[in-house]
């Protein structure tokens, strides 16, 4: 899987183990229409994850800032991953208040099917 570089945002794709694809979010996601680049990238990621039976780990610990349209794109990813039965985990820095507030709120999408997990780190 290739990295995504779009404006101030970089998403680094790393496969350290045969079953996990890590997506490291770096920099800032502040584009006017982030869905335009994120959505096709996430589609590719989901295709690879389905083919190779991978869990996708989203790492936000090093992300400086994202705008609300990026949150919409992440919710769309959560929805699409669930519809394809791809497992997602979300890791964030709970010592940073904005990260804790933003990502704790997304727990509303954990539906007890084990397809979405949260791993607060600090």
């Amino acid at each position: 899987m290739e990295d995504l570089i779009a404006g101030d945002l970089k998403i680094q794709a790393i496969q350290r183990t045969p079953t996990i694809l890590e997506l490291l979010w770096l920099g800032k996601s502040n584009a006017r229409n982030p869905t335009a680049v994120l959505s096709p990238y996430f589609s590719q990621v989901l295709t690879v994850a389905m083919e190779q039976k991978l869990t996708i780990e989203l790492h936000f610990e090093r992300l400086e800032h994202f705008n609300s349209s990026t949150i919409t794109a992440i919710i769309q990813l959560i929805q699409e991953a669930r519809s394809k039965a791809v497992k997602l985990t979300i890791t964030f820095d709970q010592g940073i208040k904005w990260q804790k507030l933003s990502f704790d709120a997304l727990r509303v999408f954990s539906k007890g099917d084990g397809l979405l997990e949260f791993r607060p780190a600090s």
Binding site: I71, T72, I75, Q76, I78, Q79, E80, A105, L106, V108, F109
Partner: peptide, 8 residues
């Protein structure tokens, strides 16, 4: 958030 999910 739930509305965004449902629209997705």
């Amino acid at each position: 958030l739930t509305m965004v999910y449902e629209r997705a």
